[in-house]
């Protein structure tokens, strides 16, 4: 039956075209199937697993680490520092790092395909293209959210257990506590999605990561060089400020409410994703 002496499995090909058993002749591409494929892709790369591990460990571990340091030098803190000490925000400091890891990974899940040429294989399987972007965003955001939310909860409880030493601990029922924990996970996840959108637009790892770093880490300090009035007027609209407030217990008089700021941040993320989708659909791959 097999006409291919060097290929032991060749018998499979010699059936009539498209009618081999076990493979339905027309098994269409669906969003569910693309989700499954993107799930496999996410976990089958070493760099992805590392980034996710770093994001989780920094989110869960840095809060408690800083809590230990703070409690150790509590008696050296000024009265003001002790009065305004926020056990919630101190427990969640890890987000500075987890946000970086998730942001870089958000860029890489799409630019890694462009730099290796994998995107061509991907788009040959899913030529309508947009399901690829939706599936990447869904798989990545669900994984990132669950990891960061779990990490933030661990950080919150462990840190507050450490804060009992000087009786400055709070519970998850304290004002703003749960909102800040949830908000941290939402903000970091949103950052990751924003980065996937940048990566899709720029199709290059370096460009994607630079854009992300400039917008989230370079713009805020640059703004301080402007006259105070101007800086205060612009500041609440920065993605990092608008989005970050939902993850913090401290309310700033110069910015939006936590959820109001987060809504604006979501608006930025959606605008970036729609631009990315439009470019992905329109451009030659």
């Amino acid at each position: 039956m097999s006409a291919l002496p060097t290929a032991p499995g060749a018998g499979r090909l010699t059936g009539s075209a498209g009618a081999t058993d076990g493979i339905p002749a027309a098994s269409p591409v669906t969003l569910g199937r693309v989700l499954r494929s993107e799930w496999t892709k996410l976990w089958s790369l070493r760099s992805t697993r590392w980034s996710l591990a770093v994001a989780f460990l920094t989110q869960a571990g840095l809060g408690p680490l800083f809590a230990l340091l703070e409690m150790g030098r509590w008696n050296q803190l000024s009265l003001g520092q002790r009065l305004f000490f926020s056990p919630i925000d101190h427990s969640l400091v890890g987000f500075h790092f987890s946000q970086l890891a998730i942001g870089v990974l958000g860029v890489l899940i799409i630019t890694g395909e462009y730099s290796t040429g994998q995107i061509r294989s991907t788009l040959l399987a899913v030529p309508r293209r947009l399901p690829v972007l939706w599936a990447k965003l869904i798989v990545f955001s669900v994984v990132a959210f669950l990891l960061i939310f779990t990490g933030a909860l661990i950080a919150f409880f462990v840190s507050n257990a450490i804060f009992t030493e000087h009786h400055v601990n709070v519970g998850l029922g304290a004002p703003h506590a749960f909102r800040a924990v949830l908000g941290t996970a939402l903000y970091v996840t949103g950052t990751g999605m924003l980065c996937t959108a940048f990566g899709t637009m720029l199709r290059a790892t370096a460009g994607g990561i630079s854009t992300f770093v400039v917008i989230l880490f370079v713009l805020p300090p640059i703004l301080l060089l402007l006259p105070t009035g101007t800086a205060d007027a612009i500041n609440p609209y920065l993605p990092s400020v608008a989005g970050g407030s939902v993850g913090s217990a401290l309310l700033s008089p110069h910015s939006f409410s936590p959820w109001g700021g987060f809504a604006l941040f979501c608006g930025y993320v959606i605008a970036a994703i729609l631009t990315a989708a439009w470019l992905l659909k329109r451009r030659d791959a």
């Binding site: 076990g22 493979i23 339905p24 098994s27 269409p28 591409v29 669906t30 199937r33 693309v34 499954r36 494929s37 993107e38 496999t40 892709k41 089958s44 294989s121 399987a125 899913v126």
Partner: peptide, 10 residues
Amino acid sequence: LALAQTHGIP
């Protein structure tokens, strides 16, 4: 595997 899954290929 990732390519196969887009079409539900076993």
